[in-house]
Every structure is written in C-alpha cells, then in structure tokens.
Amino acid sequence: MSGYDASVVARVVVGVSGSLGSVAALRWAGALARRLGAELWPVLAWEPPGGDPAGRRSPAAAVPAEEWQRLAGGRLVAVLEEVFGERGPGVPMHALVVRGTPGRALVAVADRENDLLVVGAGRRGLQRAFSGRVCRHCLGHACCPVLAVPPSPLESQLLTVHRRNAWHLPMDTRGL
C-alpha cells in the first residue's frame, strides 16, 4: 500500500466464509482496524445451493431464503467468536450477511474511497496469489484499495496431511 495514506481509512471490510484463507484475512483485517482506528465490517455472502436459478428448481428451494440467511448468520457469528473470542476485535464492528456472490457483495459493501477491502488470496502459494475468483473480482472492480492476504504457511502442510490421510498413505510423524 505504498503511496496510500492509511490514516484516511474509516472502514476495513473483510470477506468471511469460514475457510482458512478467510480466517487469515479476518485476523489481518482486525489488526489493521485496531492500528488504523477504523471500524471492522466482516461480510459473509451467501447464495442458495447451486445459485439463484438452481435454487428455484431444486429440492433446496423448499427451504425458505430466511432459513439460508439465518444459517449464514450463524456461520458468521461462529467464525467471529472463533477468531476474536468474547472480547471482540477491539474496534467497532458491523457484521453483515449479504445474499449474492462473494465478489460482488464485497465490492458493493466496500463502496467508499476511504474503505479498505481485505480478502483471502487463495491457497496456491505466493506465485499464484491472485488465482481466486473472489480476489480477482475485488481487485478488478473495487473503488477502494484491496489487500489480498496470502494463506498461512501451515495451510499447505495441513492440506498435504489431509491428502495423505485421504489416500491412506503413511505419514512421517517424527517431525511433528
């Protein structure tokens, strides 16, 4: 963010899905909001399973949109409690649950020039940090600065262990 005056940031908007990448982005966003004295706006975007068109013709359509909204709100609350605990982030927080695709929802919420949009950059490493669709959409459409947070180095190790476990391959636990 060189050349950008961070003192003008009023809101730090962050995408939250519950994934490891979004949890890393939420931690960064909370720390930035505290350092800048800004409000924290965690946003969880949701769509009916299969998207809106599929939702109208699938068995999931029997579940009312209010129920999906409630479930998404519960997920957001669970992630916020996991990351910040009972103390909260230490700054004013305005959590939102928005119906829509994540990229569009985040860009719509972070609609001011003095916002900072924080997103997880995906799990493919630093050389391909902007491979995620949500991250690419935000970088291409946001009217405010976007911070793409790379995944934790432990995430790739966790995925390796998960893959080995799924394929029932032996693991060397001497280094653990």
Rank of each mutant, 00 (worst) to 15 (best):
R163I: 15
R70G: 01
T101F: 05
T173E: 12
L158A: 14
G55Q: 06
D52C: 15
A29K: 09
V83C: 01
E47W: 14
L159G: 09
R174M: 11
L106H: 05
G15I: 01
R123K: 07
H137A: 08
E47A: 07
R87G: 07
W167Y: 11
A105L: 04
G18W: 00
R70C: 01
H94M: 13
A33L: 08
R34N: 10
L117M: 05
F84T: 02
G175K: 09
V63E: 14
D5W: 04
L96F: 07
G15E: 11
A6C: 11
G51T: 09
G85W: 03
A61F: 14
G122F: 02
A166T: 08
V83D: 00
G51L: 04
D115G: 06
E155Q: 11
N114V: 08
A105D: 03
L126Y: 02
T101N: 08
G90H: 09
A10G: 09
G120M: 02
R57F: 13
V9A: 04
W41E: 12
A29T: 15
L169I: 13
G132P: 00
V109L: 07
R27Q: 13
H141W: 12
R99F: 11
P59S: 12
V16G: 07
L71E: 06
P49G: 11
E67A: 08
P53I: 15
V98M: 04
C135Q: 02
R35H: 10
L96W: 10
G140H: 15
Q127L: 13
V77M: 09
W68I: 00
R11D: 08
L154V: 11
F130E: 00
R112C: 06
N114G: 10
G90D: 13
L71C: 07
L117S: 03
R70H: 06
P89F: 03
R87K: 14
A24S: 09
G30D: 01
L117K: 06
L159Q: 14
R11A: 11
V83M: 00
